[in-house]
Design a protein around this nucleic acid. Structure first.
Length: 578
RNA sequence: GCGCCCGUAGCUCAACCGGAUAGAGCAACGGCCUUCUAAGCCGUAGGUUACAGGUUCGAGUCCUGUCGGGCGCGCCA
């Protein structure tokens, strides 16, 4: 609807140019927005104010001319110039007459568009180390990333979701070591389990699996293993890891490493699945090393002037691109850094043909944005093809008190616990209700309250109520051929409000996609549900006279469809009864 | 110290690439169920958009500074 109005104004603009009123070199983005209140019409346009100076005309005069130049259309009933030079446009009364029918015929596709023109984009999110269960911090990134990917698809982008598995490096070695030590305990060895190793119960589970499947194959005597080990956490772990690799050889260590990795990745995958989040691709960091993509990327950088050797290490000259300092890519000990795989990873993403790549990172990673973009520039890629969107931390509140969390102490609320405590729909809707760059307070008591206080039920209830009306209808044996409804009978103010709201839905999806802001959909849903509940309380559907009943049923059926479509974009279910 | 994000009603948050009178929910107060689900509806009250300047027809939104909060500043991942 907005696009059609916008086109009328573009036509008006063009004809003024033709008449010589305006110069023809004007580059201008015609903006039409929904008016705030009905006194300002249905749409408002600020074009005259934007162009006034360049046109050498007073804004109001230019607005008058634009109005006169509007092509004839039965879409508009009238226009007016208001305030400093706004053009207010009033739709003709019947302009929404065909809307419920259109929504019904398009069904789940209503609201989708092709503004994305099939552009290939990737949304990468969560990407937590597979060293333990996901916690609520990951939940926010998961809810945001998944909703964003869905919104982008709805807006016509070819968007895929990807999880980057950080399955290389020291943390994974520590994980494998932790499993092996627990396994040795199961074999009957007396183990001095390091406090800096992974303490979680899931380590026991993996160790038990290993013992069940492979018996004592990886058993060794604990005594020599722990002989003369350092006391400090990090040297202790490194010593044990190195001894483990020697004792177990590549095969054995690789078996344990792989088992731990696969178990945890599968755990994360099913956890996210139950959160309504699924990925097209799971991309392994280790695969970048195995395929030599990492060494190739480093070689490419060596061919530029942006890589240099100092003190035995290879540094990337990221200061050339505005970073605070240069960054190590290859360490003196020959190992590459996490940054090195990141360079290869982002190059790989672009090489896979994505015209735009979106990373959703926790806010604590913001310091890495510059260096990753710098590496893209150095490799001849366009850093603007990458958007890094930061998700701020959520602070949990329970019983009015902050829930303290720290990964180090293992004291954190897992995503699974959150889902079990508040439910998937409530958790996802709560996350969706906040824009990501905003600090967030997550009130667990509110999220799990089965009451009117809880916004997710408010919206779902609207959907269930409509379904209930149609169940009543069937029970009463009333036939309702919605396709033959005459929507001209919908003359009540609340019906006009509802129709207008339904017509806005495609604009909301488009706007949410452009701005990477799925929360716009959540706020829209609340507005739409409010309009419906108000309507429900004010006017009877079934009890109305037959023709009017048909029109009203058609309207609420369309409402039901739009609620379902919008909830789906947020990964929230639309229940038929509550 | 330097860098990034943020500061809007008592609380939690919106405000469409700068637009007209800054909006919701919760909490508070007052109404609405013999009728399609009261997990609902209607109304009242609540603001110097942290503060001070600047840019312009117009600033919560852009720029500068101050104050306050979060995060980051490893040859960690």
């Amino acid at each position: 609807m907005r696009n059609e109005v916008c086109q009328l104004l573009r036509d008006a603009l063009a004809s003024l140019v033709e008449e010589g009123v305006l110069p023809d070199s004007l580059e201008v983005d015609v903006q039409v927005e929904r008016s705030r209140g009905p006194e300002h019409g249905d749409f408002a346009c600020n074009l005259a104010m934007v162009l006034a100076k360049r046109a050498g005309l007073k804004p109001r005069d230019l607005a008058e001319q634009l109005c006169k130049a509007l092509p004839a259309s039965d879409l508009l009933s009238r226009t007016e110039v208001a305030g400093p030079g706004f053009i207010n446009l009033f739709l003709s009364p019947g302009s929404y007459r065909s809307l419920p029918g259109e929504i019904r015929s398009r069904g789940g596709a209503y609201g989708t568009s092709d503004v994305g023109a099939g552009e290939k984009v990737m949304v990468e999110f969560v990407s937590a180390n597979p060293t333990g269960p996901l916690h609520v911090g990951h939940g926010r990134g998961a809810a945001y990333g998944d909703a964003l990917a869905r919104v982008l698809r709805a807006a016509g982008y070819d968007a895929i979701s990807e999880y980057y598995i950080n399955d290389a490096g020291r943390q994974m070695d520590i994980l494998a070591l932790s499993v092996w030590l627990r396994y040795l305990e199961l074999c009957g060895e007396t183990v001095l389990f390091p406090r800096a190793a992974y303490q979680g119960d899931y380590i026991f589970d993996i160790a038990a699996t290993l013992h069940r499947e492979d018996d004592d194959r990886y058993r060794t005597e604990a005594q020599p293993l722990f002989a003369d080990v350092p006391e400090e956490d990090d040297p202790l772990l490194d010593t044990l890891i190195s001894r483990a690799k020697t004792i177990l050889a590549d095969d054995g260590f690789g078996r344990i490493h792989g088992l731990a990795r696969d178990t945890l990745v599968e755990d994360i995958r099913s956890d996210l699945e139950r959160f309504g989040v699924s990925y097209q691709t799971w991309f392994s960091e280790q695969s970048l090393i195995d395929s030599e993509a990492v060494s190739r990327a480093i070689d490419s950088l060596k061919e530029t002037e942006f890589l240099y050797e100092r003190e035995g290490a290879w540094w990337f000259r990221s200061t050339e691109f505005g970073d605070e300092k240069d960054r190590v890519v290859l360490r003196a000990n020959g190992n590459h850094t996490y940054f090195a795989t990141d360079i290869a990873y982002h190059r790989d993403k672009i090489q896979r043909g994505f015209s735009h790549v979106i990373n959703i990172w926790g806010a604590d990673h913001h310091g890495y944005i510059k260096r990753v973009k710098a590496s893209m520039s150095a490799l001849g890629l366009n850093p603007d093809d990458l958007s890094v969107l930061l998700v701020q931390f959520a602070v949990l509140y329970r019983g009015g008190a902050k829930v303290s969390m720290s990964t180090r102490s293992g004291e954190f609320v897992t995503l699974r616990e959150l889902r079990e405590e508040v439910g998937r729909d409530a958790a996802r809707f709560f996350y969706a209700l906040r824009k990501p760059d905003q600090h967030m307070d997550f009130d667990l008591d509110l999220a799990k309250s089965q009451s009117s206080d809880n916004p997710v039920y408010y919206v779902q209830y609207a959907h269930a109520r409509i379904c209930s009306v149609f169940r009543q209808l069937a029970e009463k044996g009333i036939d309702a051929d919605l396709a033959s409804a005459d929507h001209g009978l919908l003359t009540e103010a609340r019906e006009a409000d509802l129709l207008q709201k339904l017509s806005r839905y495609p604009e909301v999806v488009e706007s949410a996609a452009r701005a990477y802001e799925p929360h716009q959909v959540a706020y829209y849903l609340r507005d739409l549900a409010n309009d419906f509940h108000t309507y429900y309380n004010a006017h009877p559907f079934i009890a109305a006279e037959a023709d009017l009943r048909l029109a009203r049923l058609s309207l609420i059926d369309a409402t039901r469809q739009v609620i379902a479509n919008a909830l789906d974009l947020l990964g929230v279910t639309a229940p038929e009864r509550m």
